[in-house]
Design a protein around this nucleic acid. Structure first.
Length: 297
DNA sequence: CACGCGTGGCT
DNA sequence: TAGCCAAGCGT
């Protein structure tokens, strides 16, 4: 590992100074944002772009200002209010997490990395992000932006490997400022750098505050040579079918006839049945008598 | 560890 | 235009 070549204090100053002027004004970054607001934002932002999350986040926080408010409502309402953010199982997990907060944590978002990890829908990234951004604790926050920035800046590679490795976590921990408050700003700053400047497709090295230190740029921007990431198919997949079925239920005000669902995916009846079954198994759909269906009550 | 899981904007 | 990509998680 060539991390010793990067002067860490200089790196910290460059990124922190850049973040101070370049940061986007996002509502979950406001000093007024509660840990619950941060928690909701982190789950919504799992694989979904900021621009699509923002309006839905506002609607959720207005309707459910605390975990107890969400837990008191039906899980199907969470799925409906999720709208078109995608991966709607996240809405269900958010509802289940709110229920767990009421049952185990006095209605509050827990602050420790350990307790956060025990909540549904919370993995390594989200636990660290909520601990750091929601509670100001020192935590190693590694998302896809951080991985790409460090792959280029420190490792001199165009992209990070397909899956997160232990050595990447160790590298990120070694670069994390000792002070918790600086660590928090550093983490969000590196993420912001990846989101705005050190982007996946067309990095804007001319605008980069650490271009002078970047191992990838210094090496002449060598192409990625690792294993290819396999693209996701879409047309005709179960994911597309499930999305079409769930959309009908989301947009209906009450129970829906099986025949109306059939019209949402007419060409492959066997696939439709299988997907409806899987939606029920996931808890996203509740079957009623008489071939009727609804979002879970 | 590789895979399945939504959705839409951008190049 | 057809991929590529976006603050991952659970199995």
């Amino acid at each position: 590992m060539s991390s010793a070549a990067v002067p860490t204090p200089v790196l910290h100053e460059q990124v922190l100074d850049w973040y101070a002027i370049a940061q986007r004004d996002l509502p979950w970054r406001s000093p007024d944002a509660t840990p619950w607001g941060v928690f909701v934002s982190e789950v919504m932002l799992q694989q979904t772009p900021v621009a699509r999350v923002e309006p839905v986040w506002h609607a959720w926080l207005t309707r459910w200002p605390t975990p107890a408010d969400l837990a008191a409502d039906a899980p199907g309402e969470a799925v409906r209010a999720w709208g078109r953010l995608g991966y709607p199982r996240r809405a269900l997990r958010l509802h289940a997490a709110a229920t767990a907060m009421v049952e185990r944590h006095g209605g509050e978002v827990p602050g420790s990395h350990e307790e956060l990890l025990d909540l549904p829908g919370v993995g390594t990234y989200t636990a660290a992000a909520v601990a750091s951004f929601g509670f100001g604790l020192r935590a190693t926050v590694v998302d896809t932006n951080v991985r790409r920035v460090f792959a280029r800046l420190v490792q001199g590679r165009a992209q990070a490997s397909p899956s997160l490795t232990r050595s990447e976590m160790d590298l990120a921990t070694s670069l994390l400022p000792a002070d918790a408050d600086r660590a928090r700003t550093w983490s969000v700053g590196v993420m912001e750098l990846g989101a705005l400047t050190c982007t996946a497709r067309a990095p804007r090295c001319a605008d980069c505050p650490v271009a002078e230190l970047c191992a990838w740029r210094l090496a002449g921007h060598p192409a990625y040579d690792g294993p290819a990431r396999k693209g996701q198919a879409w047309h005709g997949t179960d994911r597309q079918a499930r999305g079409a079925l769930l959309r009908v239920l989301r947009e209906a005000t009450g129970p829906v006839d099986g025949e109306d669902l059939a019209r949402a995916w007419p060409d492959e009846p066997a696939q439709r049945d299988r997907c409806l079954d899987s939606l029920v198994a996931d808890g996203l759909v509740e079957p009623l008598s008489g071939n009727r269906f609804r979002l879970p009550a």
